[in-house]
Each structure stands twice: as C-alpha cells, then as structure tokens.
Write a protein that binds this DNA or RNA. Structure first.
Length: 274
DNA sequence: TATATTGTTACACC
DNA sequence: TGGTGTAACAATAT
C-alpha cells in the first residue's frame, strides 16, 4: 500500500535513474489504466524526455520536455519497477515505458485501481488546486501551528481518520496513521477536538519523525509494495502496531488490538494509547 | 464462495 | 453551507 514514504522512495529512485531519458516506446496492455485514449497518450509522450519527477500527496508527477506532465497514482497495489535489461511482463503488467538506453519501466497493478493520466504542465497548479490536498507533511514549511489550525477545523473527526484524509494532510494512509498515533500514545478513536495542546504537539512530532524514517528505510512492504528496483522496503519490521494484532505492545505489557474504524482496520495498544 | 483489502470520492444528513 | 460519517468502487487472492 504505497503511502507517502513508499511513493517518495520510488520518486527518488526514478529521479536518479531516468531523468533526462527519452521515451522510445510505450506499450499499453490494459487501456483503462490510462485515462485517455492510448493513441493520444503515446503521441504525447513518444520522443519526449523526462525533465523532472515530482510528488504531491501520493501522486507521482513526471514532467516532460514538451508541454505534458504525466500523473501516476498507485492506489493500493500499483508498482513502478525499472528494469535495466529485457524483462517479460506478467499478468499484472499493464503499461510499459521503454527508454533510449534500453531501460524499461513497468507499471504493474494487481487490483487495477491505479491510474496514469496526462495534464498540461501549465495546468498542474490548477489541477492540484481543485484536488484541495492538505499540506505536505515533510515540507519544512509545514509547522506545528498550521497542524493545530487544520485540526481545529475538524473537531469531531476521529484522529486516525483525520490523519488519513488527504484534504487535511497529504500522503498519510492506514499504516502510518497507526504508527504515528502509537508513537504519540494517542488512541485512534479520540476526536480531534478532545486533544490537549501537548497531545497535538506529540502527534505533530510523531508525523515529522516517522515519515522521514520510513523514507530512509525505503518504505513498508506490507502487501505487495516494491520499490522502483523491485526490492522490498525495510520499514515493515520496524512497524510497532500495524499488522501486529494480538502481539505484545512494544511499549508496555498490553496487547495490540485491531478494530474497525470507518471501514478500515486500526491497530493500537489500548493500554498505552489513551 | 464469501470476505477482506485501501485510497478516494459520492452522497445523505444535520 | 459545510462538516461529518458511511457506502461505494475498483479486482483479486485466499
């Protein structure tokens, strides 16, 4: 489940390896992944060079040296994997990009929820303005005060759901909201409006601590996530609560519990998360 | 075979 | 009007 750290890992790896490369071939195996006619898609990108690779929330943005930018969302099970040599596609490979140096980028997606779309580069700002994403948590400009302000606007929301809503803060999903709240020792069911100043501060610093650390370990391979080199992320074994139902709490004598929250599973220690 | 999975959005309600 | 909560959707593995 790629969340911010996973998408950022892929972004960094691709940036180092395919910036400046020219697209010489595109194969669209499953056309619904690409949100425009395959012919137009290919015409726009064939021969184009990748200028920059950016990220906003969980969306990767490939900016080309023509007028186009390509947006890729991996949703639950999407993968972007770069192969230096020839590689045969499997049943989950839906789009393949081939580069002038022989490299190939595979878009795989078991669930087929991910998408690829094109936006004119000059329209990117307008596109993201309409999406109304909250601030980027890794942005240095995102500070405790702004976090407090956004929280204050959603007093009734349960704090876990608050953290997962990209309109509040971008890029946090189920795994990292669980981990952030464990570190801050806050119960996921707490309404945002019930949190004390100190508790809010603790959540804020947990965000600033955990996300960069997960990036450092190239993300979490819980389901089928792989980085751009096809490798698993190392953060899985560093998770304290996510996916650890019935295990001992790493902080006290309690046991990790799993509950349903808004149709999602939430993992936490009822003893030390209050 | 029924169920579980999650990021995002649509929609009903107050 | 807009905050809030829930359902729905995508497709597959088990």
């Amino acid at each position: 489940m790629p969340e911010l750290p996973e998408v950022e890992t892929i972004r960094t790896q691709l940036e180092k390896n395919i910036t400046g490369k020219k697209i010489v071939g595109i194969e669209v195996v499953l056309s619904k992944i690409v949100k425009l006619p395959a012919g137009r898609f290919k015409k726009a990108l064939l021969g184009a060079k990748i200028k920059k690779i950016k990220r906003r929330a969980k969306i990767l943005i490939f900016e080309f040296n023509n007028d186009w930018s390509m947006l890729i969302h991996l949703k639950m099970t999407g993968q972007l994997i770069l192969y230096k040599k020839t590689k045969t596609k499997d049943k989950h490979t839906h789009v393949i990009f081939r580069f002038s140096n022989g490299g190939q980028l595979f878009f795989n997606d078991l669930r087929q929820f991910g998408y690829i779309k094109l936006v004119k580069t000059e329209e990117l700002d307008g596109f993201f303005a309409r999406e109304k994403f909250g601030p980027e948590p890794l942005d240095k400009k995102f500070g405790a005060k702004e976090f407090e302000t956004i929280l204050a606007g959603r007093p009734k929301m349960k704090i876990k759901q608050f953290l997962m809503d990209p309109k509040n803060i971008a890029g946090i999903g189920n795994i990292y909201s669980d981990e952030i709240l464990f570190r801050a020792r806050i119960n996921p069911l707490r309404p945002a409006g019930s949190l004390s100043k100190d508790e809010v501060k603790n959540i804020f610093s947990a965000i600033k601590k955990i996300l960069p650390e997960a990036v450092k370990f190239r993300g979490t391979s819980a389901e089928n996530y792989l980085d751009a080199f096809g490798q698993e992320g190392e953060f899985l074994r560093r998770l304290k609560v996510y996916g650890r139902e019935n295990e001992d709490c790493p902080g006290c004598r309690g046991k990790i519990k799993r509950i349903k929250l808004g149709g999602r599973s939430a993992h936490f220690c009822p003893a030390c998360q209050r």
